[in-house]
């Protein structure tokens, strides 16, 4: 059963949110979703770039009140 995990990286600067996501992704199962909350503009660009490169799937990226919600599905 795929799970959804919340990673609250608000207040952390690049590459903190990305590294937190990767650490959690590694220990997750294929199909799991991870929603990263980030207040760092650089990470909002960098995380989707990494996700594509690493062969995972971007589910959603939206900004709400200065916070990015970036949702990623583990594909491998």
């Amino acid at each position: 059963m795929a799970e959804k995990m919340l990673i609250d990286a608000r207040g952390s600067f690049c590459p903190g949110p990305l590294m937190e996501l990767i650490a959690k992704l590694k220990s997750g199962q294929v199909g799991d979703e991870f929603e990263v909350l980030s207040s760092d503009k650089g990470s909002a660009k960098d995380i989707p770039e990494w996700v594509e490169k690493a062969g995972h799937e971007m589910v959603e990226s939206r900004q709400d009140k200065g916070v990015w919600h970036i949702t990623v599905r583990k594909k491998r």
Binding site: G11, S12, F13, P15, G16, M19, I22, A23, K26
Partner: peptide, 17 residues
């Protein structure tokens, strides 16, 4: 002053992740 990941933590993550 800000919440930037310390360099030693990043080097360690480079190795571990």
């Amino acid at each position: 002053e800000k919440n930037v990941p310390p360099f030693k933590q990043l080097f360690q993550q480079a190795v571990e992740l």
